[in-house]
Simulated assay, not measured.
Amino acid sequence: MSKSLTKAELINELASRAGTEKKAATAIIEALSGLIHDQVAAGGAVTIPEVGKIYCRERSARTVRNPSTGEAIEKDADRAVKMTFAKMIKDKVNA
C-alpha cells in the first residue's frame, strides 16, 4: 500500500507531470479547492473528470443513539459532503 501525498508532494508531482513551476501548481490547487468549497457550500456539486463528483446532501432529522450510554438523542436536519468516485478509479483500484 502506498502512502498518501502531502500537500508539498502533491504540488511537486503536479508541477512535474504538467511541466510547470511549483508556483503555478500551487495556484491551481488553491483555486480548485476554493472553487470546490464555494460550490459545495452553496449546495452545488463539482465533477472532476476521471476522478469523481463532490456534492452536498441534505439529511433529515433523525433519532440516533449515544454509543456509550445507549441513550436516544434527536439529531436535527443537517447537510453532509459526499463524494462519488468515477468508474475509471474504481476499476483501477479493483484491477
Rank of each mutant, 00 (worst) to 15 (best):
D38I: 03
E30Q: 01
G52W: 14
A41R: 09
K22D: 03
K75G: 02
E30M: 00
K23Q: 02
L32P: 01
K75T: 06
V40T: 04
A27M: 01
T69F: 06
L10M: 14
E58K: 15
R65L: 12
T63H: 00
S33Q: 02
S60C: 10
G19V: 10
D38H: 08
A25W: 10
L5D: 05
K53T: 15
I48C: 05
A42I: 06
K22R: 12
A25F: 09
S33V: 11
G70I: 12
S33M: 07
A18E: 10
T69D: 04
C56S: 14
Y55V: 03
S68A: 10
I11F: 03
A25K: 07
N12I: 08
R57W: 10
A8T: 15
G34K: 06
V40A: 01
S68N: 09
Q39S: 11
K23N: 02
L14H: 05
G52C: 11
G34S: 12
A41W: 03
L35N: 04
E74N: 06
Y55Q: 08
E13D: 12
S4A: 13
K23W: 01
E74Q: 12
K53C: 08
R17T: 09
R65V: 14
L10W: 07
I73Q: 05
R57K: 15
V64D: 01
E30D: 12
I54E: 02
A45L: 08
T26E: 02
A41Q: 08
I73Y: 06
R62Y: 07
L32F: 07
R57P: 09
S16F: 11
K7H: 08
G43A: 11
S68I: 03
T6R: 02
A24F: 04
I73P: 03
A31T: 10
T26N: 01
S33Y: 03
E50F: 13
R62A: 04
G44D: 07
A27Y: 00
E58F: 14
A18D: 10
L5S: 07
A31Q: 02
V64L: 02
S68P: 00
G34M: 02
I54G: 01
G19H: 08
R65S: 10
T26V: 02
T6V: 04
S60Q: 14
I54Y: 02
G52K: 12
L35Q: 09
T69Q: 05
E50L: 13
L35Y: 11
I48E: 04
Q39M: 06
K7C: 04
L14I: 15
G43L: 11
R65K: 13
I11M: 03
T69M: 04
T6A: 03
G44Q: 06
H37L: 04
V46H: 07
L14V: 15
V40C: 00
A42V: 05
A72I: 12
C56E: 11
A8E: 12
A31H: 00
G43M: 09
E74L: 04
A18I: 09
I36D: 00
E74A: 12
K22N: 05
P49H: 12
R17L: 05
A27G: 02
S33L: 07
I73V: 14
L5R: 04
E58Y: 15
H37C: 03
A18T: 12
H37N: 05
Q39I: 11
G70H: 11
P49G: 10
A18Y: 08
